[in-house]
């Protein structure tokens, strides 16, 4: 019992970045258990084409279940199929992404299988054959080392923490026929509004440009949008609780204890003073930049680089400098 299964998330028939992360993490873990990594891809007809690349991230077997009713995520269709595939294998652990889909799907699968689940995991280690899991609690004010007393151990991993690792082994695609009774689904997705195929949740972004009360008014957000666009792919906007509570920005962008906990490569805090619940939610970012006119703002205590200045002078200048950098290639 030493194999590890990775749930590989797709949207619109394309694998998401999170899929490479779960498969890479599964391959690392499987090597420690002395087993192999498998990937599970569910989607509409033709999804197998996108799935083959997962072999390059260490999946020895890529199990593909294609069905019309699985093209778009519907938890009532997905959860029983995933649970069935896990039962059919011999898995020590199963890795989900802690994306919006993963956070919805993994608990349902855990309940179907009657095994516990650790959410939003930032570390996976094997000690004396036992899986040790690191996960944040209290939105990152503390980290817990936990063990799961059940097999398989189910975890969902935080985006951007487990890096995709290309590997030589090319896995084989194994198609299976998922059992879905499309007429019996009690949940129906009517529409998706304002979400394009490549839309990123703030928790998945590799770079976050985040604004706080120092932005003064919602009309000023074009400054941050310009900076986001200048930096380019993988960049998302974030917000402090104060500006979400004021109705300036949607809750989906909120970073901190009653919003998202994030760990991007770069976090740019603009006009954010740094309340304790905000710092908890972003302090594991790799690099933090703070732009604030108050030199005593707590955000400077966690920032790697700070500029003490009026953000309305700094941000347009930063956008220009980033554009110059991008133009140079």
């Amino acid at each position: 019992m030493a194999d590890v299964l990775a749930f590989a998330e797709q949207r619109d028939g394309q694998l998401r970045g999170a899929a490479r992360e779960t498969v890479s993490a599964a391959a690392t873990l499987a090597a420690e258990f002395g087993g192999s990594a498998h990937a599970l891809v569910l989607g509409g007809p033709g999804v197998a084409d996108a799935a083959t690349e997962l072999g390059g991230f260490g999946a020895a077997s890529i199990q593909v279940g294609a069905h019309e009713a699985l093209a778009d995520y519907n938890p009532e269709a997905y959860a029983p199929v995933v649970a069935e595939r896990i039962r059919a294998g011999d898995y020590a652990a199963v890795i989900f992404p802690a994306s919006i889909l993963g956070k919805d799907l993994a608990p349902r699968v855990a309940a179907h299988l009657d095994v516990p689940l650790a959410t939003d995991v930032t570390g996976l280690e094997v000690q004396d054959g036992e899986l040790q899991v690191i996960r944040p609690m209290y939105a990152g004010k503390a980290f817990a080392r936990v063990t799961l007393d059940a097999t398989p151990a189910l975890v969902s991993i935080r985006p951007n923490v487990f890096q995709p690792m290309e590997r030589e082994a090319a896995g084989t695609v194994e198609a299976f026929e998922p059992q879905v009774d499309a007429g019996a689904l009690r949940l129906r997705v009517r529409e998706r509004k304002g979400s394009s195929g490549d839309a990123l949740d703030v928790a998945e972004a590799t770079i976050i440009v985040s604004g706080g009360r120092g932005m003064k008014a919602p009309d000023n957000w074009h400054l941050l949008e310009d900076l986001r666009d200048a930096i380019g792919d993988g960049t998302a906007l974030g917000a402090s609780r104060a500006v979400v509570d004021a109705g300036w920005r949607p809750h989906a962008e909120q970073v901190g204890q009653t919003g998202k906990t994030v760990a991007p490569k770069l976090y740019v805090a603009v006009g954010i003073s740094g309340a304790i619940q905000h710092l908890a939610g972003m302090r594991t970012s790799q690099t933090i930049v703070a732009i604030n006119k108050d030199p005593d703002a707590p955000i400077f205590n966690v920032a790697d680089y700070g500029i003490v200045a009026d953000l309305f002078d700094v941000v347009p200048r930063l956008t220009d400098e980033v554009k110059k950098l991008r133009a140079e290639g």
């Binding site: 516990p116 609690m137 503390a142 980290f143 908890a280 030199p295 680089y305």
Partner: peptide
């Protein structure tokens, strides 16, 4: 069936610069 073995504070961040 989830056992907390140990709680720790988040790692300190290195000194930043203005």
């Amino acid at each position: 069936r989830i056992r907390v073995q140990q709680l720790t504070y988040p790692p300190e961040r290195g000194d930043g610069q203005i």
